[in-house]
Each structure stands twice: as structure tokens, then as C-alpha cells.
């Protein structure tokens, strides 16, 4: 059974310097509060896996947590660049950053293979593309039945998965609703997992026989962090703050404005500030 604990204790107990950590959430349910906690606890030399590094890894890279990023699309969605990510890749600030770059299809397949306990993922991909020339972890194999050439990448087997979800019950079963991304796969592919949730409830009430539920015995630690996905969103709880994603472009463009924002909003704060973001859906639009 997962330990229901605080976010600070979960990070302290389960994420160590040098770990391979996958913090997932495909635009939806990105575990931003957990990212802030890792920054506060000054974890170093992490290998960070994520399909879309997004603001969460932009912040962690800029604060020096990352040694390597494994990813497939490193932009600010609909806005432009992730300037801290770019600064690390282009100018090695605050430290050199190793990258391992894939396509979305490869990353999704690699998580699924990890969850399935396989050593590799096989798919029809990267045909005519240059990524296989720069990423030695992309190889091609022949189908033993048809002879077709197919792409192969190693399965993702992170030390720790970190996700945010809507609910957990008191036994530690977790419910994910809406755009489910690769969260089920990343938890099942990882040795340990930390799940932050909007709320801990008596009854999960899944709403469908086929709801995405992670049974308690697949999860290592759970922390209740209302608003913990902000400025990403939690379906049914609060909307994505698209205006903040645009604002991040200004904040992160320069090193000093970035560091000032991180000090005021992360280093000098705790996970409780995220609760302020659990405003009703669509307030911004009305």
C-alpha cells in the first residue's frame, strides 16, 4: 500500500541525486508542485524523462537539477521556446545538459514497453528522419515474420515516476480522468512512484467501469496537493492557465528574471501555495 504522506517527505524518501525520473502528464495533470519540491530539495544530476519538457523541466533545468533530458518535443506549447532548456543546450547554463531526443511515438512506445516488462519497443517509425543519425538509442530491426524494417528504442524503466491525478482514496488507489497521456504506463514502468492528487476521498467513484485507475499496490507514495498541476490543469477541478504559459515566455527569457521568479514563487514557498489555483473552471474566460 502506498504511504499517504506529505510531498516534501515523498520527494525526500524516494528521489535521490542521480536518479532517472519521469514526471509525466500530457499537457494535462503535469505535476508542477512536485517539480517545485524537487527544486527546493536541490536534487542534482537527475536524468529527466518526459515527452514534452514543458515549464516543469524548464524550471528544473534552469535551477540545476538535470544532467540529462530524454524528450520528444521541447517547446512552450502554442507560445514558443523553453528558454531555460535552450540556454542549457545552447550555452551550457547553468550546467551542460545532455539530451536524448526521440519522437512522441517512440516515447509513448518506450513507456508502454516499460510497463509491459519488455526490454525494447518496436514500432514503425523514424522512416527517412535524421534523429537516428544523432541518437544511438534508435536502431532498426527486421520483423522475423514479414522482413519489414521497424524502429526499436529501449524501454523506459525510470527509477521514479511522478504524476498528478484527480483523486486517491484512503487505501491509495488513484483515479485519472480526462486526457490520460502516458501516466498509467509511466507508473507501471518505474521502480517507484509518487502521485500528487487534488484530493483524498473516502470513495473513488470512478464513474465508468473502464476508468483509468492505478491500484494502490502499484504506487509508492501519495501526497494531497490541491492545485498541484497548475499552470497545467486538472480536468473537473481547474482550467489550464494559458495566460501564464504566455507569461512564462517573458519570465524565463532572461536568467535574472527567471531566478527572481523562482526565488519568490518556489524557493521561498511550499506546496500549499498551489491551493490558490484551484479556482473554478473557466473563471478566466468569463
Amino acid at each position: 500500500m502506498p504511504r499517504i504522506t506529505t510531498l516534501a517527505e515523498a520527494v525526500s524518501a524516494h528521489i535521490h541525486d542521480g536518479d532517472t525520473v519521469a514526471m509525466e502528464g500530457f499537457t494535462h495533470l503535469i505535476p508542477h508542485a512536485a517539480g517545485h519540491e524537487i527544486i527546493r530539495q536541490q536534487r542534482k544530476n537527475l536524468t529527466l524523462i518526459r515527452m514534452t519538457p514543458d515549464l516543469i523541466y524548464d524550471q528544473m533545468i534552469g535551477m540545476g537539477c538535470a544532467k540529462k533530458v530524454v524528450f520528444s518535443w521541447g517547446g512552450n506549447p502554442g507560445v514558443g521556446s523553453l528558454y531555460r532548456f535552450r540556454d542549457a543546450v545552447e550555452k551550457a547554463w547553468p550546467a551542460p545538459l545532455e539530451i536524448e531526443e526521440h519522437s512522441h511515438a517512440a516515447m509513448a512506445n518506450a513507456y508502454e514497453a516499460g510497463a509491459a516488462g519488455l526490454p525494447l519497443a518496436v514500432f514503425r517509425g523514424y522512416i527517412g528522419a535524421d534523429l537516428p543519425k544523432v541518437n544511438p538509442n534508435i536502431k532498426f530491426i527486421q520483423c522475423p515474420f514479414t522482413g519489414e524494417t521497424l524502429a526499436a528504442v529501449p524501454a523506459h524503466r525510470p527509477d521514479v515516476a511522478v504524476i498528478h491525478a484527480q483523486k486517491a482514496d484512503r487505501q491509495g488507489n488513484v483515479l485519472i480522468d480526462g486526457i490520460a497521456g502516458v501516466q498509467k504506463e509511466v507508473v507501471l514502468a518505474s521502480k517507484r512512484s509518487i502521485v500528487t492528487v487534488e484530493e483524498i476521498v473516502d470513495d473513488l467513484k470512478p464513474g465508468s467501469f473502464n476508468a483509468v485507475v492505478l491500484p494502490a499496490w502499484t504506487v509508492t507514495a501519495i501526497a494531497e496537493v490541491p492545485g498541484g498541476a497548475y499552470p497545467s490543469y486538472a480536468q473537473g477541478y481547474y482550467a489550464r492557465d494559458n495566460a501564464f504559459y504566455k507569461k512564462w515566455d517573458e519570465i524565463a527569457r532572461e536568467r535574472d528574471t527567471f531566478l527572481a521568479w523562482m526565488k519568490a514563487n518556489v524557493l521561498d514557498q511550499g506546496p500549499e501555495i498551489f491551493a490558490a489555483h484551484t479556482r473554478p473552471l473557466r473563471v478566466a474566460a468569463e
Binding site: 518535443w73 517547446g75 532548456f85 535552450r86 545552447e90 531526443e101 519522437s103 511515438a105 517509425g125 528522419a129
Partner: peptide, 17 residues
Amino acid sequence: PKVRLPGGGGAPEIATS
């Protein structure tokens, strides 16, 4: 890189599938 762009995302397989 002179400019690091976001990367391929879904495009490599969208382009062929």
C-alpha cells in the same frame, strides 16, 4: 546548435503514417 527548436514531437511518424 545556433537555435535549438522544439523538436519533432509527433511529426516524424505523422509524416509517414
